[in-house]
Each structure stands twice: as C-alpha cells, then as structure tokens.
C-alpha cells in the first residue's frame, strides 16, 4: 500500500511538511500544493531535510501553484518533479489512500 500525501502550507510558518515527512512511509508520494510548494525551494533552511527524503519518497510540486507564485523549475530542488491537475488526479487514483496534511 502506498499513500498520496498533500501538503498545502508553507514550511516556514507551519510544521505540516516536516510532520508529513516524518510520518510518510517509503514508497509514498508527497504532493506540494498551494503554499506547500514553498517546501520545494532549494537553498532554504529546510531544503536539506526535504532533499534527504527524495528517493525513499517521491516529492512532486503542483505546477499551477508554482506559476502563480512566480516559481519555476530552476528554483526547486533537484529530484522534485512537477505536475498539473490532471497529474494530481492520476496520482490520487494510483495511490491506495490520500491523506491531506491540514
């Protein structure tokens, strides 16, 4: 069984991403949406924590939310891929259960 976790908060103000990273099981996917996409930034104080999990977890950022916030792929950590809403739906269908980190 694998879970899709969604994180929608900035890691710089709320601990959702950190908590999600600590609870997700190997093989799970974390999708960063809304303000959650700030967790994908490279060179931030939490980048290393996120980067260390890439590989055992898939970490994906939602492109429409990145674009809205002026963030393109060059600004995010290597190993984090991006997707659109169709991809979001596909991820949800592909995983056994979806858990939102509100």
């Amino acid at each position: 069984m694998a879970s899709l976790h969604t994180v929608n908060k900035s890691p710089f103000s709320i601990n959702s991403l950190k908590s999600c990273l600590e609870h997700a099981n190997d093989g799970d996917t974390i999708l960063l949406i809304e303000d959650g996409i700030y967790g994908a930034l490279k060179g931030s104080e939490i980048s290393q924590i996120v980067a260390d999990k890439i590989g055992s977890l898939s970490i994906i950022a939602l492109e429409p939310d990145m674009k809205a916030r002026g963030i393109d792929s060059s600004k995010i950590l290597t190993g984090i891929i991006t997707t659109n809403y169709d991809g979001f739906v596909e991820l949800a269908a592909k995983h056994d259960v979806c858990q939102a980190w509100l």
Binding site: N8, I33, E34, P64, Y85, F88, V89, E90, A93, L102
Partner: peptide, 26 residues
C-alpha cells in the same frame, strides 16, 4: 472541502481537481 471561499485556496484547488478528474474520465 473544509475551508471557506476566497480566504483560503481550498475550494479553488478542489474545483480544479474535480474538473480534471471529470475530464480524465473519473
């Protein structure tokens, strides 16, 4: 959907997800 419109993006995200799901045959 557990947040109100306009203050939070939740209802927007849910709307875009729903549209994409319907479009892709779900």
């Amino acid at each position: 959907i557990s947040e109100g419109p306009y203050t939070h993006q939740a209802a927007d995200s849910a709307y875009h997800f729903t549209k994409a799901a319907l479009k892709t045959g779900h």
